[in-house]
């Protein structure tokens, strides 16, 4: 996905027009293990880049998910309430977390592209 960008905390954002869809990367879900609950933000909430946007609970522990870009929450993935394991099985697709109306497109410049993120993850192992 050419327009998917990544944060150092393993969140991703895919931008279409003014809307950014956010989630956590495959690397992140693999590190977390079986996801059993996702606490999603309220629709209408304003998030600055780096704000806590969600909490992912695996069997073992809770992990914060930070907004990779700033914006207003306009939609959340209610399917995660019924089946949180979508984060494990399809982190970049059905396991998305929320859609934001971007505050500042310049936020995207702070993020890594696919190739840079891949190199970044390889450096972590």
């Amino acid at each position: 996905m050419a327009n998917r960008k990544y944060s150092q905390d393993h969140e991703w954002v895919e931008v279409e027009g003014e809307t950014g869809m956010i989630g956590i990367s495959d690397y992140a879900q693999e590190q977390l293990g079986d996801v059993v609950f996702v606490e999603l933000p309220d629709v209408g909430k304003m998030l600055d880049r780096g704000d806590e946007a969600a909490v992912v609970e695996s069997v073992k522990a809770a992990a914060e998910v930070y907004a990779p870009v700033g914006g207003e929450v306009i939609e959340v993935n209610d399917a995660l309430n019924g089946d949180p394991s979508l984060v494990n099985t399809d982190a970049f697709g059905d396991g998305w977390f929320a859609k934001l109306r971007l505050t500042d497109p310049a936020d995207l410049d702070e993020l890594m592209d696919e190739a840079a993120y891949k190199t970044y993850c390889e450096g972590l192992d």
């Binding site: 293990g33 079986d34 059993v36 695996s58 069997v59 073992k60 494990n88």
Partner: peptide
């Protein structure tokens, strides 16, 4: 802490 099957499958 876990194998590739994952904690829930192992449980």
């Amino acid at each position: 802490v876990q194998y590739p099957a994952g904690i829930i499958a192992e449980h």
